[in-house]
Structures are given as structure tokens and as C-alpha cells.
Amino acid sequence: MGAGHFDAETIGKVVGPVGTETLYFAADGQTASDLCFAAAERLISSAGIAKDEIDGVIFVSQTPDYRTPATACMLQDRLGLPRTAVAMDLNFGCSGFVYGAFTAASFVESGACSKLLVLNGDTLRRHTSLQDKGMAFILSDAGSAVLIEASDSAEPMTFSMNTDGSGYGTLIIPAGGERLPKSEKTSERRLDGDGSARSDEDFYMDGMGVFTFAVREVPLLIDGLASLHGIAKDGVDDFLFHQANAYMLKFIAKRAGIPMDKVHVNIGRYGNTNGSTIPFLLADFAAGGEQAGRNVIMAGFGVGLSWGGIAGRLGTFRCAEIISV
């Protein structure tokens, strides 16, 4: 991590409130789509899903294999999915699972598709400066796979999707796109006033901007979702929030008037895995036993700025264990 760049006291002060204990780095040459491919194969084999019945794949990532084509197209081929499947990339991070699920559920609801894979994956460690105090100890590389399918017995799901593009610079990799192409200058790491160093090609997070955005918007999101779904906030059994950092989750719960024992936290085990945090919460949740019938609210928030949530009652869902590849 950032060891070698910061002293132990500084690292302790950063890691303590963030709550990370173990972080994961992709191997050299291993991409987000590799991680998602492994997750999808594991899901398909463990749940006994017929590949020829999957009619869509949505890859949600900030780290695609190529600028073009869409990584989802290659995943369709690599996973052996039918040529009739729709395949698309969505460029989102910490809100990404909700965006993927929203898109897939909309396709199912419209009748266009019946079984879609939602693959969330990121390898942002490669784009993170180890000399950046705010970033070095938070992110993990990870991929996840979730199948969303049509079912006559499905419980209703309520989505709320939100955007504030005026905050685009709050979480950003400034260089490497059309607006600011990579150059010698963009690769130079510079010290900021806080003792961190990063270049325009590194992932940048305005810590205070993200914090104030999340702790203001997520409580409103929860209230709005509960109301839209027709459930009292007190009637929600479990809150599955993007694992941004442990202190932020605690503060969100406090401002939202939610008891912390209803808020699932596993950032210590996996780190902040961007769009995979909610799938990882679901996997840990399923590993804890039968969860059918529980009312849940999920919420993702981050780069965009974008934030969204899902309210619903869990049916029986099958989940493979989390693996390291």
C-alpha cells in the first residue's frame, strides 16, 4: 500500500476511520474483465445457469480493456453467450451496481431480455498514487457477477437514480481522455498541500467533497426510496450501502436515523471495491443463512456525481462464495 511513503502513525490515522484491513491488487496484466469473467463463470457453474438462456451482459467499469470496443462485447464471446445477447458497457464506479441492476431490471421489465449478467469490475489500484494519503489505503481491485432474471414470483423493486454532473471533478482521472490527452506533463506527480503526491493520470478524490455529498444525499435517498416503495424506514431490516469508508457509513446512519446494527459493513475484509461492494455484501449476507423475506435498501454513490438505490424484499437468492483469482 502506501507503506514506504508514509510513516506508521500517518497510516494508522488514515486507516483507522476508513476501516480497511485487507486490500486486493490485480496481478500484472490482469484486467477488470478478467476478474468479472472469473466471477461470472463461477456464478454460472455454481447456480447451474444455461449460458444459452442469457440474453444480456452489462459490464460496469471505469477500467475497460480498451478505449473501444466495449469490453462487454468481448465478455459475450469469452463467456460463450449467444450472439443474440445485448452487450454494453456502463462507465460508473461506486454507484455502478445500482446502475447495472437498474439497466438490467429495466430490460427485463420491458420484456426485451429475460436473463442478464451484471458485471461490476475495476482495477483502479493501477491508477492510484501510493503517495496519495486519501487514496492509497482505501481501494481494492475486484470484480463481481450478478444475474438478474425475469420471474413470475419476483417481489417488486423500486429504484431511485440521481445525477449531479456539476460535481464531476470530485472523483476523476483528469488525463487520458479526449479533454486532456496523456502527455509527459500529465504523468508528473506533484505534491499537494496535504503531503500527498499524484499526477493527472492518477485517480483523484476530493475527500471533503465526497464526504459532504454522500452524507447529505444518501439519507435523502433512503427517505425517498422508502416512501416510493411504500415502506416505513423502521420497517427496513437491512441497509446495504456502498462501502466507501467505515466512518462515513456510521455518519450516514446517524444522519439518516438508522441503527448501525442494520447497516452491513465488510470494508475491513475487502476494501472499497467500487461497484462490487454491494454484490460482496450480498454474498456475505447469503453466506449467513436464509435471507428471504427481509426488506432491504441498497444504495450506491460516487463518481459522476451519481447516486442511486434499490428498495425491495429479498427472495431466495443463490450466491457463490467470494474467491481470489
Binding site: 490515522k13 488514515v14 483507522g16 476508513v18 475527500g207 471533503m208 464526504f211 459532504t212 447529505r216
Partner: peptide, 17 residues
């Protein structure tokens, strides 16, 4: 008070609101 930047953000947003 185990001061860290996160507590600073929390105080700032609390006072503003």
C-alpha cells in the same frame, strides 16, 4: 479526541446544515 480529517468533514457539514 482522536482527531482525523473525517471528523473535520463531519463537524463542517454538521455546522453548515
Amino acid at each position: 479526541f482522536d482527531w482525523d480529517s473525517m471528523k473535520g468533514y463531519a463537524i463542517l457539514v454538521t455546522l453548515e446544515d
